[in-house]
């Protein structure tokens, strides 16, 4: 499968990565060479092979329903680009 620059633009949009036209062109070539590498997978017949998401196939342990966290808002918001009145601020969102 080979990508077009429309693919790259669509994917960049989904990933919220702003790309200039020049970057799109450059990226396109690189992504296509990576996809050529990746496409080597297709030579293996994987019919009826169950996908493996985790190498060890363990099962999840569940946590008891207890409140263990305390308010650390001030500490956490020290690292925020913009916060006021306890809220994180972003440019106005139109719904």
């Amino acid at each position: 499968m080979s990508l077009t620059s429309d693919h790259v633009k669509r994917v960049a949009k989904l990933a919220r990565l702003g790309l200039t036209d020049a970057e799109t062109t450059e990226t396109l070539t690189q992504l296509n060479s990576i996809l050529d590498l990746v496409d080597q997978m297709q030579r293996i017949n994987t019919k009826d092979v169950v996908p493996l998401a985790h190498p060890l196939e363990l099962k999840q342990t569940l946590r008891a329903d207890e409140v263990t966290e305390m308010d650390q808002r001030e500490k956490f918001q020290n690292t925020a680009p913009q916060a006021d009145d306890g809220l994180y601020l972003v440019p106005r969102v139109v719904e």
Binding site: M41, I44, T46, V49, V50, P51, L52, A53
Partner: peptide, 11 residues
């Protein structure tokens, strides 16, 4: 892609 890769992962 993704599913195929996870199948190869099992192999």
């Amino acid at each position: 892609y993704y599913k195929k890769a996870q199948q190869i992962r099992r192999l």
